[in-house]
Amino acid sequence: MNELMLAAQDGLKIDWTRMPTYNTIMSVAAGAGLLLVVALGYRLLNGHAIVSESWALAFGVLGIILFATGLHMTLTWPLAGQGFPFDNIIFGEPSLAFGTLLLAAAFYLWKRGRQWEETPDRPRTTAMLSGPVSLFVFAMGLACLAIAAAGWKYTLFAAPPEEPISGEFADHPQLEASFISGLYVLVGLGALFYPALLRRRSNTTAWIVGTCWTLSGLAFLAFGALNYFTHIGLIINTM
């Protein structure tokens, strides 16, 4: 799959000076962001107290990470100069989109959070504020489903044998492809139901969005943390 990776007698060799990779921090930040969005939505729908400045700080930290890394990966074509230009689309563009949304939420909560906290009907106000941007969320949901379909069709995401843990399944490339594609399906489904949640605020729709983003958030966070070990091992094993 990678013509510029040199398969020497002692195994796979990668020129890491031409293969920058930081989807580790992107995955952790995206997972944490999804979980925090669900947590804020839960508190909002159930009438719990919300300190807007604390949520603004949390969204701002994660938004900066995802915006910066996603923007760099999106505009640097291809970032991975050894045969993986599709990573720019798969990881860079969704991270840029999510990071921008988090930064917008952080900015609003920081500037207008106190007024928002004192609003008599916060769910309705939030729905009105989020209504226009929900079109973009819906569109990115469709994009996530398209990424998932590409992952299955072209067997993307499979780790080489030199990568610890994930490489144990190198002979079964559809396994990891199905895992990552499945996460994109969950994120996409949550995004598709998000506009409906804003309009109706039904328990069923809230459960669907919350479940999809909670499961995918936990998986992205845990998988990204695990990749700090597996990616370091891959680099050492292929230098």
Rank of each mutant, 00 (worst) to 15 (best):
L4Y: 11
D15G: 05
W16V: 03
M19R: 13
P20C: 07
N23D: 06
T24Q: 13
M26F: 00
S27I: 00
S27E: 01
L34V: 00
V38W: 02
A39D: 09
L40D: 01
L40I: 00
H48I: 03
A49Y: 09
I50M: 02
I50F: 03
W55A: 04
F59R: 00
V61L: 02
A68C: 06
T74E: 04
G83K: 09
D87A: 14
F91M: 12
E93L: 14
S95E: 02
F98V: 00
G99K: 00
A105H: 01
G113E: 13
W116I: 04
W116N: 10
E117R: 15
E118M: 14
R122I: 08
R124A: 15
R124W: 14
T125K: 15
L129W: 12
S130C: 12
P132H: 11
V133R: 06
S134A: 10
G151L: 03
K153A: 11
A159V: 05
E163W: 02
I165N: 04
G167A: 05
G167K: 07
G167R: 08
H172F: 11
Q174C: 09
L175C: 09
I180H: 15
Y184V: 02
V185K: 15
F193G: 07
L198Y: 05
R199G: 03
R199H: 14
R201S: 12
S202Y: 13
T204Y: 12
T205L: 15
A206N: 10
I208W: 11
C212K: 03
L215G: 05
L215H: 08
F220H: 04
L221M: 14
Y228K: 06
F229E: 10
H231F: 10
I232N: 11
I236F: 10
T238I: 04
T238G: 04
